[in-house]
Amino acid sequence: GYPGAAALIDDPSRWRNYILHSLIETTISRDILLLTRVDKPALLRRLFELGCLYSGQILSFQKMLGQLQESGNTTTLAHYLKLLEGSGLLVGLHKYAGQKVRQRASSPKLLVLNTALMSACAPYTFEEARTQPEFWGHLVESAVGAWLVNATKGTSIEVFYWSSRNREVDFVLAKGNQRIAIEVKSTRRRTGFSGMEAFAREFPGTKTLLVGGQGIPLKAFLSGDVERLFD
């Protein structure tokens, strides 16, 4: 988390200003632009903003170029996304495919590495965000994804997503030959789990977990040990 912002939690305007200027802009300007050659700094900044807007969603590099109205190439975007990942801001998850080559060729699932980044860039207060089901769903999913990515650093566990024929698994954890498919729910409303069922059929032996909703409470999951999920 960002301890410096904790004291501003009751002042949303100052909190947002702190995240945007003291954290995001400082990180991009000092940790990336001063240390690495970036030919299109404006593109890198817009890519980060796009990542916050689409956090928790799969977006191809071609669609990113269209959204950014940029004539650059996908290789540049992929490189900038890696720079943002290295600075702890944004990551593009690969699709789980069982084969490294197919994983690297997949469209990335954008994910902020701290939901404060997503919240600060959004036009909603906390109360307003709770009334926006789509945004709130992506925010909750991003919180789980950010925790998984941060918690697995320095371990042999890799974090992916999976999709096929309009069926999706929010997150896939892979450790050697072991796999865990994770579905995230932001409400207690009962819905189908066709994505996890399809994934389990394609990759037998997969452990499945439901987080939020009728499954593991979010607070309990985010307070746990990621290694123990494989027990």
Rank of each mutant, 00 (worst) to 15 (best):
T76W: 12
V91P: 00
A120T: 02
P12M: 04
P123L: 10
S22C: 04
N177R: 13
G213V: 04
T187M: 03
S13H: 07
T74K: 10
E128R: 02
K63E: 12
R179Q: 07
V112Y: 04
N166C: 03
L209Y: 03
K109D: 01
T36H: 15
D10Q: 14
R167S: 12
Q99Y: 10
G92L: 15
T75D: 13
T76M: 09
I182L: 09
G56H: 03
L43G: 02
L113Y: 06
L20M: 08
L59T: 08
E134H: 08
D39K: 11
Q57K: 15
T125W: 13
F230A: 07
H94G: 06
K153S: 11
Y96V: 05
K82T: 15
R14C: 00
G192H: 08
E134G: 04
V226P: 01
G88L: 05
E134Y: 03
S87V: 07
S60Y: 03
R14D: 10
P217M: 01
E227D: 09
L89C: 11
I24H: 05
H94E: 08
V101E: 12
Y161M: 05
A151M: 01
P204D: 08
T152Y: 06
Q67Y: 10
K40R: 15
V149G: 03
L110V: 00
L23F: 07
W136I: 00
K219M: 09
T115D: 07
R190W: 04
P12R: 06
G51P: 00
E70I: 00
L139S: 02
R190Q: 10
I157K: 12
K207Q: 13
P41V: 10
L89V: 06
G98D: 01
I182V: 05
D11I: 00
L229C: 05
G1F: 03
F135Y: 15
T191Y: 05
K109H: 01
I28M: 08
G212E: 06
G86M: 06
K109V: 01
L44I: 05
T208N: 05
E168V: 06
W15K: 07
D11F: 03
D31H: 14
V172I: 15
G86K: 03
A5M: 09
S156H: 12
Y124W: 09
A5H: 11
G195N: 08
T208D: 01
F61M: 14
E127R: 10
L210Y: 04
L84P: 00
I9K: 03
D170R: 06
S223E: 12
P3H: 09
S223V: 02
